[in-house]
């Protein structure tokens, strides 16, 4: 495969990944907003959030997927914006965005795991 064709394949793959992640986000954001709106009725407390998420495998899985979708979707979009608006070389942008996506995923997952496996300090 020549360089042009593999570049085309990469662009197509990124585009597809971003669309698929957008599909996941569309559902996840609606669920997330619904939970926020119902949860704050009657006040919001840390205890309540922990009560809902701690040890709950379904919510844990949901937020893992949610964070992964955000970590895929955002850097691909930001990559385009940086490519159009800054003189940075495409290779550097690609590396920066791979790092950014990884950071988003790790931060998101770490927060979710923290709530799932929450142990109060003695």
């Amino acid at each position: 495969m020549n360089a042009g064709a593999s570049k085309s394949r990469a662009e197509t793959g990124l585009w597809l990944a971003q669309r698929l992640a957008a599909g996941v986000l569309a559902v996840a954001v609606v669920v997330h907003l619904g939970v926020i709106i119902t949860a704050i009725q009657g006040g919001l407390s840390a205890a309540e959030i922990i009560g809902r998420l701690r040890g709950n495998t379904a919510w844990f899985a949901f937020y893992l997927v949610f964070a992964a979708a955000a970590a895929i979707h955002a850097p691909i979009g930001l990559r385009t914006i940086l490519g159009e608006m800054t003189p940075l070389p495409p290779r550097l942008i690609g590396l920066l965005m791979a790092g950014f996506g990884l950071l988003l995923a790790l931060m998101g997952w770490q927060a979710i795991y923290g709530l799932y496996a929450f142990r109060p300090l003695e």
Binding site: S8, E11, W15, T80
Partner: peptide, 13 residues
């Protein structure tokens, strides 16, 4: 043709 138009300066831009 599809390979030519799908690069970083093609339809996805």
């Amino acid at each position: 043709r599809l390979a030519a138009i799908a690069g970083d300066a093609g339809c996805y831009a």
